[in-house]
Design a binder for these strands. Sequence first.
DNA 1: TCATCGGGTATACAATCGTCTACCGAAACA
DNA 2: TGTTTCGGTAGACGATTGTATACCCGATGA
Lengths: 242, 242
Amino acid sequence: MAKNSDDRGGKDKPVERTTSGRQKLMEAALELAATTRSLASLGLREVARHAGLNPNTFYRHFKDFDDLGVAMLDELGTELRAGLREARMRPAKKGFRLSDFSNPAEGLAQAQALARESVGLVLDFVMDHREAYTVGIRELHGTSPVMRKAMQALLDGVAVDMTEDLLGVLMLPAVSHEELLAVARVIVRQMVFFSMDYLEQPSRHAEIKREAERFILLLFWGAIAARAPELLAAAKLKFPAI
Amino acid sequence: MAKNSDDRGGKDKPVERTTSGRQKLMEAALELAATTRSLASLGLREVARHAGLNPNTFYRHFKDFDDLGVAMLDELGTELRAGLREARMRPAKKGFRLSDFSNPAEGLAQAQALARESVGLVLDFVMDHREAYTVGIRELHGTSPVMRKAMQALLDGVAVDMTEDLLGVLMLPAVSHEELLAVARVIVRQMVFFSMDYLEQPSRHAEIKREAERFILLLFWGAIAARAPELLAAAKLKFPAI
DNA sequence: TCATCGGGTATACAATCGTCTACCGAAACA
DNA sequence: TGTTTCGGTAGACGATTGTATACCCGATGA
């Protein structure tokens, strides 16, 4: 062994913020996981080094990396849900009113505007939190059952929020609450992929947004068509060209 | 150091098949990645040990784990696409004929049968290859850009296959080829999640199948509704209750 | 028949890892 | 005021890792 007084000498400079050690560790882990490899395969010494702390400090705050993972997810997850809800409330105050499709054409137009707003919102959020998003999705299909469950629960929570908010703004005719929730779940999951595309292909931003909107509208169209096809025929709808 | 003549002593017995060393390594890597952790974070010694080979043998065949990864994906990916196509051709021979929706009700019923058949097919396939599926999806969102690109290309390839096969059986009215491809892509991606549910929750198998079918039908309904809503109204369709 | 070479092995080394034990200062609390 | 607890550090350990060098053997081919 060359020099056993290892660590704390290296190319990756510590994050060096005025936060607590626990925070520093979580931030370091997030940065490393986003750029280097999966959470579970991070080295305890590695993240401590990157946080500018002694390796043993990790033990003071966390049992394993699962432990650290759920702590991170607690923090960022609630921030995500709150952010999305708040942002989703904004347009509602801005003049949207509950549409009951008594005028189908108007209702459909409103649905389209709502879809556009929501898609932009999610994608902006992802762009603003690309590190957290990246590791989150990694863990969604990762090796740790704990993290997988936690991420699945988070996505389901988002779908539930979305359903509730949607019910306050848009009354789809003859579409039950459960049906709407199923649609929301599917949308949330699909947005995982659209978000990934969005992060990886900046040059296709506009196109990806259009695709996501189209997907959502297709689902709503389908849901209405399955229950009240005459509404769609009556609406003489103008579906956005491909 | 206790005993430097390490390796080859352990609880995980070698796979011990009559295959070549290269094959043995790939199989060992697949097994370990499916049960232990992500491909990229596997140890070279670890997989060699699990394959019953000398650590250095790895170098004879692969440069790194990305290299091994794309080799595995080459093998299993083509098997997947071939398997799906072959299975998709089967019902076509079994009496399905091209439907042009001149009789809307019949066309829609046929679409529903087709969706059911396809969903069952994919989910069966996933059950039969759960190891490969598990690590594949892991790598889809994993840390290696090489593996991510390869997996995305594979999924896109499946979507293309699906579109072509679909065009041979089902002529959706007024839905363009590009539109159909976009829908196929979305379906393939969503099936990633449905498959995950399917593997993780054996008790909900029937329910998950129904959800997947519903999702696909919803998309087709929506696609038709966007182009020819009068068809749906005329069909007096019987959408499966939720 | 002899050289080459592809695929497998043996050994060794430095680096890194997780974790154990011990020490320390400051804040909280009695 | 004394003491306990909390967050952080220091050093050491055995284990494991990736990789470099070198040997080996059977098939291939001249």
